[in-house]
Write a protein that binds this DNA or RNA. Structure first.
Lengths: 152, 152
DNA sequence: TAATTACTTTACTAAAAAGTACAGTATTTT
DNA sequence: AAAATACTGTACTTTTTAGTAAAGTAATTA
């Protein structure tokens, strides 16, 4: 299981803006801050812009800025802009080999696992704001201690 | 966030064996059952074999079989054989751009998120057996309802 | 012991994701 | 208005992951 480069760097760019009071920051500034090329920073910010998460101003004094306070972004909306959730309808249509439906479609007990993970992850992401991450002011507490898998 | 093809199909091959009482099943059988090519099935089973999760017998009457009862495999060991966990030391060394250390290394609040997800996921995987998945006899219950992210 | 079945290994091709290059348009400043 | 700064868009290259091909070795059976 993996976090994609788009997800990782995309979130980091949002963090850069959040830590600069929402911006604006120019592409060269963002690029330098994250150590990625100007082109790649451009690609990332364009994705975020098309998703409506940041706004851009051209010309001198321009740059990218958050469209709302960092407190009002939850991590789920940022991730949704940068990639697909762990489980989605496409997932099952992807691993069918050359069969019309996947081998386990009838009693797919695997799907339930991804669905559950997706739910857990979205739950956590949905409850954290960009501001929380920027300041490190969240506390996972002992949430994992409450998790257990039972037998039916 | 994504599940790789190796992880998905690898687990499915293990499920095929589990549902056949641990095997043995030949490569052509597995290949046909999952709708993947013989070559690809071979690759998958070789990975599982090298990880010690299955054993192989050559020649007629041969095939692949589980090395222990399905009840004794936890999903974590299967996943560990097929890919890397969501968070691992390599992860942080990967997204540094052209910087020596990543931009957020000092106060990396992002890393904590992946670490936490990794912990949750490993917790769930570690508590489910291959037999559970094969029979669908697990119950996630309302584990997600217990999860919450607090503010420090 | 030859034929058959089946695993093994290495090398390759194809597709997707990651990352770059470059020419273009908009805005501001001088 | 020209120069400088900065976003925009398309096309490209590189790397990784996914998936295939084919020749080889081992065991069994007739």
């Amino acid at each position: 299981m993996k976090v994609s480069a788009l997800e990782e760097y995309g979130l980091r760019c949002m963090l850069q803006l959040a830590r600069k009071n929402g911006g604006p920051m120019t592409l060269p500034e963002i690029s330098k801050a994250e150590g990625v090329s100007l082109s790649y920073a451009g690609k990332l910010l364009m994705i975020l812009k098309k998703a409506g998460l940041v706004k851009a101003v051209r010309g001198r004094q321009g740059g990218y800025a958050l469209v709302k306070p960092a407190e009002e972004y939850d991590l789920k909306e940022i991730f949704d802009a940068l990639g697909e959730p762990l489980y989605n309808p496409k997932h099952c249509r992807k691993f069918t080999g050359d069969l019309v439906k996947c081998a386990h479609s009838k009693d797919c007990t695997v799907r339930d696992i991804w669905k559950e993970f997706s739910k857990i992850i979205d739950g956590v992401l949905g409850n954290m704001t960009l501001a929380d991450v920027a300041s490190g002011s969240y506390d996972f507490g002992n949430m994992t201690s409450n998790i257990q898998v039972g037998i039916k």
